[in-house]
Design a binder for these strands. Structure first.
Lengths: 191, 191
DNA sequence: ACCTGAACACCGTTCAAGT
DNA sequence: ACCTGAACACCGTTCAAGT
């Protein structure tokens, strides 16, 4: 199968460029935020700007690729937390991890929120896997009676994304808002 | 007092330019979102770009001036709702109005959230008045036992800002998330 | 005192040429 | 098949000149 070999050879090249672009993006976004210069990222990666655009047609595509790492970690965390004794506390811990994961640098949380819209663009495999793992954690908490029976997982995740977006780089504020949303702003009385 | 007269004459000029810039900003932002071209706004207002920068040194300043209208309306609404019978329902209605008011166009909610940071920049008089009126509504709901006694008004408002930011142009989603945050993601059990 | 707008610097994006 | 980077278009911001 000579074509397969040829394809594999090309892929090595392409993959190396992609990996370099991602590493450069992580470094640059982490320093300058999500609105950093794309030309700077291409320069740091040692590729032409056209190559960056070939791999990541939009800034959002590049940001979502950066997010994939965080999603992998969050999916693993969700699966671990499925074994935790208190379903509600496990869900709360996971939502905190989500907020923390998508606030690695300014502007990232807003990108993460895009994948949670009512009519979202097609999302990455990592994002889908993260949501599936989180959904199981959510269902367990709901079955245990820790979450309102009519609540939707995506809405809860989106709420966390909103908190992350407005509390970027303010972990204390993020914690307060998550606690308030968990307990309920209007939950003074019994129900 | 001749100087006072001279000052007043100048102010008329300055105010007219400011009003034109604001009208142009409302129209342009409303059509193109908060990242619309500032040159286009100056052109539409019939002033030079330098005049726009003189009045509004940053884009955020211009957006906050646009927000002032919404804040005036929200302050009035809060004062009216103080007379509503159910304190909790009144607060809920006002938070819905806030979300609706700061989502007039894409990008506005994120600007509104800036004024709610833990260490916010100095905010407009309209914003302060809105927060004071909302705070009274919040205190009433808390005194009535509709809100957790240790909850902070600014955190509740910030939560609404976060919801607004991630659900822009999706009123249904905004309603669902507000309902979820009001009841509490983890409020399945009694308390 | 305020306004103008040319000038500067910078960035996003495309695409013809190259390998 | 992929990469390069010059070229184009556009925008933010400043500031010398004007009123």
């Amino acid at each position: 199968m000579p074509p397969a070999v040829a394809v594999r050879a090309v892929r090595a090249d392409v993959r190396r460029n992609r990996a370099r672009l991602l590493a450069a993006a992580r470094e640059t976004f982490g320093r300058d935020g999500a609105d950093a210069s794309l030309e700077g990222i291409a320069r740091l990666a040692g590729v032409g700007i056209g190559t960056l655009y070939r791999h990541f047609p939009t800034r959002q595509d590049l940001l979502e690729a950066v997010l994939a790492d965080a999603y992998d970690g969050l999916a693993a965390t969700a699966r671990e937390l499925l074994a935790a004794p208190d379903p509600g506390a496990a869900l709360a811990a996971w939502l905190r991890a989500y907020v923390s994961g998508v606030t690695a640098f300014p502007g990232l949380a807003a990108s993460a929120a895009v994948a949670l819209r009512d009519d979202p663009p097609e999302s990455s495999a990592a994002c889908r896997a993260m949501r599936e793992a989180g959904s199981a954690l959510f269902a367990r908490a709901r079955d245990a009676g820790d979450v309102p029976p009519d609540a939707a997982f995506t809405d809860a995740l989106r709420l966390a994304a909103g908190i992350a977006t407005v509390t970027e780089r303010e972990p204390n504020a993020a914690g307060r808002l998550l606690a308030l949303a968990s307990r309920g702003v209007l939950s003074g009385k019994a129900g």
